[in-house]
């Protein structure tokens, strides 16, 4: 028996919305530690990794590890039947082929239940090594979204150059070029607006804006996004879902290489 209750159902809706344009079908793995998911997009260029620790949930029970094979578009459609303020409980029997979704209004006056068919999905699970990154930029997630959107008007590849006191996003395209520099800024009174740079050595890498744009669908999940970079290894864009329990949504994208 698996049962997990999202006290704030909106978080689940945002998580699914942040993954559904990259990943069509995926296995959500449930175990005694929590819920996790790892999937590549269809062209295997990027990877999405979700971790929701059991402490994140209002209540969590998982007697035996199970994988829930889901079509994210269908999942998202059913989740549209929930109200923003609802608590959402997911339930599945061991060896069952349906996922039960229960939506409860805040005052408990409305309870709805939906069943969704599960699928058998062959998924390739990749081992992601622990990496010490040369540069980690933590910035307001809305700022990252805006930069990706704005620079996407000019071109399709963004250069991200990280130095001690600032990070530069630059783009060149047919109609011209542009760049945005964010300086390190530790807004003590408003930590959500801070830009922090942890640097071991300066890093300059290029990435496809099309993918970064899909990553920013997670903006609503967290006021801050972090970009972890090292030469020749994939960039990690992380949105913390819950700081206290180390629950997160991460996206990986390899840097573009010159030919």
């Amino acid at each position: 028996m698996f049962e997990a209750r999202f006290e704030t159902g909106e978080t689940l809706i945002k998580i699914v919305d942040a993954m559904k344009e990259l990943v069509e079908d995926c296995n959500i793995d449930c175990s005694t530690t929590g819920m996790s998911m790892q999937a590549m997009d269809q062209s295997h260029v990027s990877l999405v990794a979700l971790m929701l620790q059991k402490e994140f949930f209002g209540s969590f029970r998982c007697d035996r590890s199970i994988s829930l094979g889901l079509n994210l578009l269908s999942f998202s459609k059913i989740l549209k039947c929930a109200s923003k303020e609802d608590a959402i409980t997911l339930k599945a029997e061991d060896g069952g082929d349906v996922l039960t979704l229960m939506f409860e209004s805040k005052d408990g006056s409305r309870v709805s239940e939906f069943e969704m068919k599960l699928m058998d999905i062959d998924s390739e699970h990749l081992g992601i090594p622990e990496t010490e990154y040369k540069a980690v930029v933590t910035m307001p997630s809305g700022e990252f979204q805006r930069i990706v959107r704005d620079l996407g008007i000019i071109g399709d590849t963004v250069g991200i150059g990280c130095e001690k006191d600032g990070v530069r996003f630059s783009v060149t395209g047919d109609l011209g070029s542009g760049n945005v520099v964010l300086k390190q800024n530790t807004s003590a009174d408003k930590p959500d607006l801070a830009t922090l740079i942890e640097l071991e050595e300066p890093v300059e890498l290029s990435f496809a804006l099309r993918y970064l744009s899909l990553f920013t669908k997670a903006t609503g999940l967290s006021p801050q996004a972090s970009l972890s970079m090292s030469p020749e290894v994939p960039l990690v864009v992380e949105y913390k879902i819950d700081d206290e329990t180390a629950s997160y949504l991460r996206y990986y994208l390899a840097p573009k290489v010159d030919e």
Binding site: H125, L126, G127, P234, K256, D258
Partner: peptide
Amino acid sequence: KGGQKRMDSFFTMG
């Protein structure tokens, strides 16, 4: 893909 490496070339199957 031109200039873009796939994820499988960085992370091992496991």
